[in-house]
Design a protein around this nucleic acid. Structure first.
Lengths: 93, 93
DNA sequence: TCAGATTATCGTGATATATTAATTTATTGA
DNA sequence: TCAATAAATTAATATATCACGATAATCTGA
C-alpha cells in the first residue's frame, strides 16, 4: 500500500466506466452477442437514444469498446481484454 | 442485453466501491498483506484519517471488506471473493 | 472514571456523474 | 441534392461523490 496511489487512476477509470447498471448490461450483452448497434440497444433497454449514446461514449472514452460503422449503423464491440476478464469474474456462468 | 438492467445494480455497486485510486490501493494492499489497520493505511497513504475512514466505510458498505477489532485498532481485510478475482484481473503480476 | 489512542461520523463546499430533450452530424438511397 | 435514418453532441438540471476539518464514539491502561 505505497503512498503513490495515483498509479491506480487508470484502473480506477476503467472500473468507473463499468460501474453502472446500464453500461454493465451493455458490456455483458456485447460479450455474449459479439457486437450490437445503438438502435438495438435502445430497443432492448428501452431508454432514450441520447442516454444510450452517452453511456457508449463513456465506454469508448475508457477504451472499453469500439464502434465500427456499417452503413447508417455503428456496431459496437468490446475492445479491451481486461474488461472481458472482469466480466468473467462478475458473471462466471 | 435484456430490458431489466436493474439486475446489474449489485455488480455495479461493487465496481463503484472499487473504482477509486485510494480504494484500489487499499484493496490491493490488503490483498498482498492480508490485513491492515487504519493508522497504518493513514501513514502509508499520507491522507487525513477521516478520508481513509470514509473510504473504508464505502468498502464496508459494499461488502468488500470487513473490520475486526483488536484492542484500539481495527484490522481490515477483504471479505469478498469476487473482489479478489477482480483484483487478480486488474493486477495479474 | 479519566486520559490518551484509534476509528467513525457529521457538515459542507467543491467536483463529478446521470439523464434526456433538442440539435447536429453522418450516411444512404431515391 | 433531398429526405430519411442512425448516432453523436449540446445544454440544462438533478443527483451523487469527494475531501477533510471538527466532533463524537470506542476501547484500554492507570
Amino acid at each position: 500500500m505505497e503512498k503513490d496511489f495515483r498509479q491506480y487512476s487508470e484502473s480506477a477509470d476503467l472500473l468507473k466506466a463499468m460501474a453502472h447498471p446500464v453500461r454493465l448490461c451493455i458490456l455483458r450483452g456485447l460479450m455474449q452477442k459479439g457486437d450490437c448497434n445503438v438502435s438495438h440497444m435502445q430497443h432492448c433497454l428501452d431508454l432514450p437514444q441520447s442516454t444510450i449514446s452517452m453511456h457508449l461514449q463513456k465506454l469508448r472514452a475508457a477504451g472499453a469498446v469500439e464502434g465500427v460503422r456499417n452503413g447508417l449503423e455503428i456496431n459496437y464491440r468490446i475492445k479491451n481484454d481486461t474488461i472481458k476478464g472482469l466480466l468473467h469474474c462478475l458473471f462466471p456462468e
